[in-house]
Amino acid sequence: MSAANSSGIVRASGAGQRFLRYLLYALLVLFCLYYLVPLYVMLTTSLKTVGEIRTGSLMALPDAPTLGAWSKAWDTACVGVRCDGLKPYFWNSVVMVVPAVLLSTLLGALNGYALTKWRFRGANIIFALMLFGAFIPFQVVLLPMARTLGLLGLAGSVFGLILVHTVYGLAFSTLFFRNFFVGVSDSIVNAAKIDGAGFFRIFFAIMMPMALPAIVVTIIWQFTQIWNDFLFGVAFTIGDSNPLTVALNNLVNTSTGVKEYNVDMAAAIIAALPTLLVYIIAGKYFVRGLAAGAVKE
């Protein structure tokens, strides 16, 4: 693991080395604080009252922690003209993210499997052309997509968003599974073929159980991307069908009298919680997903 250290990046002995170690840990603690302070500020602010926010310090702990801002953000805060809190939009995001993640993952798996284990002429070109879709700036498809959704009668609906996320998630999920299946020996597939197993049987009975790590990485990646998406949500939905990110932005920008920063922060944490939990529980796979698009296997 720590290749660089065995060769002694810091080899000076005695007091000098001890000083360097202290410096190293001091720096690491400092940077941990840098990344954690915004989360700390969000959390403490969300537990304060508006009065305390006005008079107290940004960095202070709340005098008397209260969940008032949380229940307001979830239940009664105004998002535009509607004052039901984030609750309905949270469910919009759930209803959008579950089918979109499952569909794009399953289709990506099938695609990656067919392109690597049943190689046919042009498979590589097809893959390259599809992969390109992962890198385009989505601004270039916004206008025609809006018109297409209108023609399909899906404009402003959660179903429209499911379609959009599935279609544009396909490039990445295909990439993940193709990279995985390329490393799976062809002899497994060939043996199964000789035993008379067909395309789908090999896929479901042999390939999918093997591909569990790739499935986890893809699901986490797609979940994070789709849950956090703002561009498609704001461009293709209106009001009641907004996903959570759009509702959060609207909540923060809805001005009704006194600015309630505690409610804003509670709302922001609510929006962040699902992806944050996934990251804490399955961080290893999250990092693998991040690396997959960048560093070659």
Binding site: Y35, D229, T245, I269, A272, L290
Partner: peptide
């Protein structure tokens, strides 16, 4: 884990937090 967790957040969350800070 601490260095990397902001990557799991939506830019909207990050923007909201920093707008306040």
């Amino acid at each position: 884990t601490i260095f990397l967790y902001p990557m799991a957040l939506s830019f909207i969350v990050t923007g909201t937090a920093w707008k306040w800070i």
